[in-house]
């Protein structure tokens, strides 16, 4: 009996741990977004923040036994893919006209 109780305890992880993990990932994303000077890395930190929020959605979907949380993640993935395609195209267009990826030198919308 003690063995099954032990294995039951091993099967459980507090949901708060998942949420704290996603908070850590989100904070790393925020810090990288503010600190990084390369426009591609800044864009990657946005993807990291999106992933952190996705983990929260999946964790709460597990907690409430609802499918809709995972549907949200599905739509976030679709929008992130579209956003990555358009954003990287914009980065290529910026690099063509300015020849730099440093965001300190990209401070005007118009050249």
């Amino acid at each position: 009996m003690a063995g099954t109780e032990f294995s039951n305890a091993m099967m459980d992880v507090p949901l708060a741990y998942y949420l704290v993990l996603s908070a850590i990932l989100f904070s790393c994303g925020v810090a990288a977004f503010l600190i990084k000077r390369n426009i591609i890395t800044v864009f990657m930190s946005i993807e990291l923040m999106l992933n952190a929020v996705n983990l929260t959605f999946v964790a709460f979907a597990h907690h409430w036994h609802q499918v809709s949380g995972q549907i949200f993640v599905f739509f976030v993935m679709v929008v992130a893919a579209a956003e990555a395609a358009v954003g990287l195209a914009i980065i290529i267009a910026i690099f063509r006209t300015r020849e730099t990826l440093n965001i300190d030198q990209i401070n005007l919308m118009k050249l």
Binding site: D12, V13, L15, H62
Partner: peptide, 10 residues
């Protein structure tokens, strides 16, 4: 209040 996430329960 948030409880535990059990493997395979959902």
């Amino acid at each position: 209040a948030l409880g535990n996430a059990r493997l395979g329960s959902f």
